[in-house]
Amino acid sequence: MVASKYFITCALLATSVSAVVAQNRLDSSKRVLLASADLRSEKEYIIKEANVIFPEILKGNEEKAVAYISSFSDNRRGYLQNMRMKSKKMLPQVNTVLKKYNLPEELAVLMLMESAGDGNAISKAGAVGYWQFMDEVAKEYGLKCVKRLSTEDRKKMLKKNPRKAKAFFKALARQKDDRKNFNKSTLAAARYLHDRSVNLDNDWLLVVASYNCGVGNVWNAMEKSGKTNPTFWDVKKFLPAETQAYVMNFITLNVIFNNYDNFTNNNLSFTPVKIKVPDNCAFVSPPEME
Rank of each mutant, 00 (worst) to 15 (best):
A67W: 11
S87T: 04
S225G: 08
A19Q: 10
V198M: 09
E63P: 02
H194I: 00
K89G: 01
I69W: 01
F270W: 04
D177L: 05
D135N: 13
M222G: 01
Y246P: 01
K159L: 09
K124P: 09
N220H: 12
L206H: 00
S87W: 05
A22D: 12
G78K: 10
K176L: 08
V2S: 14
R179H: 02
K124G: 15
V32W: 10
Y79I: 06
L80N: 01
E49T: 11
K30C: 10
D38S: 14
V255N: 02
V137C: 04
R84C: 08
C281Q: 07
F238W: 06
K159R: 08
P55R: 01
L268P: 02
K176M: 05
K144L: 13
G214Q: 06
L187N: 05
E63C: 03
N229H: 14
T151L: 12
M1H: 11
N229Q: 12
K100M: 08
D74N: 13
G216A: 07
A125I: 06
S28P: 07
K89F: 14
G129W: 05
M85V: 12
E136K: 11
V146A: 02
N82T: 11
D261H: 02
S185C: 04
F250Q: 03
Y246A: 04
G142A: 10
E242M: 05
N212P: 08
D195Q: 06
L158C: 02
L172N: 11
N229C: 09
M157C: 04
E42V: 03
S185E: 03
N258R: 04
A65Y: 03
C213D: 07
A138V: 02
Y246F: 07
V247F: 03
R196F: 08
N220Q: 13
N229T: 11
Q132N: 02
P55K: 09
F232Y: 12
A35T: 07
A241D: 09
M83K: 06
S71F: 13
N199M: 13
V207A: 03
L172F: 03
V97Q: 00
Q175T: 06
M83H: 07
N202M: 08
E63F: 08
S4I: 13
V235T: 09
